[in-house]
Amino acid sequence: MDFAGEHVISVDQFDVVKVERLFAVADGMLPYARRQRVTRVLEGAICGILFFEPSTRSRLSFGAAFHRLGGQIVETTGFAFSSMAKGESIYDTSRVVSGYVDAMVVRHPEAGAVGEFAAATRVPVINGGDGPGEHPTQALVDFYTLCRELGKRPGSLGGATVAVVGDLKYGRTAHSLTKLLALEHQIRFVCIAPPELQLPEPLVAALRERGHRVEQTEELADGLRNADVVYATRIQQERLPAGLTLDGVQDRFAIDAALYDRVCRPGTVLMHPLPRDSRNNPSELSNDLNRHPALAIFRQTDYGIPVRMALFALVLGVADQVDATARDASWYRPERFGVDDTKPMLP
């Protein structure tokens, strides 16, 4: 499956075969992401990272992934530090930057804007999130994590129950993940949210049309029962329409260890795209779950490196050349990154 030269704008571009190819390449990237091996396959290549919205994980993981392949990055963050503050169009910005770099990663607050960047260039453009639209690479990371946590491969998750909790209307990660999981057969989606934050109706209709079961509820405890995976999300305060107040919603949909032990089946996987909103206690997934073996959120972020390395290697056509420049890493690396981690990194 040849990805070379492709833009990655939407999960709609992926079928099970392409996902399987990506995940197979990501599996091969694990020794490099674990710091066991070093490759220079993209030595001399430059990636432009243009983020016009705040980000920690996505921006740094894209940069780290490109560096781990031996490439370099140039970046700009925010409108104030780009020529868009002077009125430059997306077309002009994309065309100019594509003359400097071999690939671009773009995050923008408006749905569809990253597609405009891609339309202006033949340099591969990867969508790092476009407002309330999509976050395809996060969905691929989430899907990869879900498969590894359940011991499955793409196409073999039929019959699984996935509970999606929180802001399902404005949370682009929930949109992209449910669309990607729709490639499977007969998934049971349990959408747990207040009515004003439920999954958009066109997406619900599309899931049902493909033969999936979609249930919607405001009852957190009932929705969590019998789930194989729980995907929690924060309230997207920055995207809410003016005048919409959701005081107390975070409290109603917060999951802690006591609730997990009371209603979840043993082994139910807990996921979250992060950040957890810790400004109000409790957050979506309470800190008392940090040592819980079911909490996969940090394994999830760790998997962002091999998956994004795989994407870069595929769109730049070097996936089959990675090992040719490889050598063992010589520096110290811990078995576990965090003091609360219950499993070695990247199992």
Rank of each mutant, 00 (worst) to 15 (best):
V8L: 15
I9Q: 09
S10N: 00
D12P: 06
Q13H: 05
Q13Y: 07
V16P: 03
V16W: 00
V16A: 10
R21M: 08
F23M: 07
A24N: 13
A24R: 12
Q36P: 10
Q36T: 12
R37Q: 14
T39R: 03
G44Y: 02
A45I: 09
I46F: 12
S55R: 10
R57A: 03
S61H: 10
H67Y: 11
R68C: 02
L69Q: 05
L69P: 07
I73Y: 06
V74Q: 14
T77C: 12
G78F: 11
F79A: 14
F81T: 15
S82R: 07
A85Q: 12
A103P: 10
A103V: 15
M104S: 08
V105H: 09
V106T: 04
A111C: 08
G112W: 03
V114E: 01
E116L: 15
T121N: 08
R122Y: 13
V123W: 01
G128C: 04
D130N: 07
G131T: 02
G131K: 00
G133W: 01
G133Q: 02
G133K: 00
P136S: 04
T137L: 14
Q138W: 04
D142C: 06
T145R: 07
E149N: 09
S156H: 14
V162H: 08
V162W: 03
Y170L: 02
R172Q: 05
H175W: 02
L183C: 03
H185P: 12
H185Q: 14
I192S: 04
I192F: 05
A193E: 01
A193G: 01
P202H: 13
V204T: 11
A206G: 12
L207N: 07
R213T: 15
E215P: 07
Q216Y: 07
G223W: 00
A227W: 05
D228C: 09
V230E: 09
V230I: 15
R234K: 09
V249Y: 05
D251K: 12
I255K: 10
A258N: 13
Y260L: 14
R262K: 12
P266A: 01
P266S: 04
P275R: 10
R276I: 05
S283H: 07
S283Y: 04
L285A: 02
R291H: 14
P293H: 11
R299F: 12
Q300H: 09
Q300L: 06
Q300F: 06
T301M: 15
Y303W: 00
V307Q: 05
A313M: 05
G317P: 08
V318P: 04
A319M: 11
D323W: 09
A324V: 11
W331R: 13
Y332D: 10
R333M: 10
F337L: 15
G338E: 14
P347F: 13
